[in-house]
């Protein structure tokens, strides 16, 4: 089916299958930050924003997001880099494979929650799995980021 998708503030005229998931559409258009880690909607690697809110692009049918604003990490590189530098200072990007989805969720949280507690942060990020870091360094980086310190 033919539709237009607004991806990172540019309009893409696309022909997608009705069963095509947004993650596949995005990867096919060169947004290679989108990764699939689980196939069962529970790892968070493929997280993008729809109208600013984090969703699983692997579980979102592409036709459903026509008319909405889709944001991938490619679309917010300056802010993503700002947090990535803090994350890297903690060594907590490690293999980096889950980082784009994680960073998209962290920035969405920053935009959505005011002064989140550690528990709020854990709850908001419960859908982002990481096998390398053990999560502690990610929490340190998030706290630094939320304090607004630039490294």
């Amino acid at each position: 089916m033919k539709l237009e998708l607004l991806i990172n503030q540019k309009i893409y005229a696309l022909d997608v299958a009705p069963d095509e998931m947004l993650a596949d559409t995005l990867r096919s258009k060169g947004f290679l930050s989108i990764r699939k880690g689980c196939d069962t909607s529970c790892c968070g690697l493929c997280t993008v924003w729809i109208d600013g809110k984090p969703v699983l692009s692997c579980t979102m049918l592409s036709f459903r997001v026509a008319g909405k604003a889709i944001t991938t990490i490619e679309g917010i590189q300056p802010e993503a880099e700002k947090f990535a530098r803090i994350l890297a200072a903690e060594g907590s990007e490690q293999c980096g494979f889950c980082s784009p989805g994680f960073i998209m969720t962290v920035i969405a949280m920053k935009n959505e929650l005011k002064n989140p507690t550690e528990q709020d942060i854990q709850h908001y990020l419960a859908g982002n799995l990481c096998r390398c870091t053990g999560y502690m360094g990610q929490m340190r980086a998030i706290k630094t980021y939320l304090r607004g310190e630039v490294q």
């Binding site: 529970c42 729809i50 809110k53 984090p54 969703v55 699983l56 969720t105 419960a126």
Partner: peptide, 12 residues
């Protein structure tokens, strides 16, 4: 509902 996976899943 808050126990079900993460915000991304619950948004779907």
């Amino acid at each position: 509902v808050s126990h079900i996976l993460g915000v991304q899943f619950r948004s779907c």
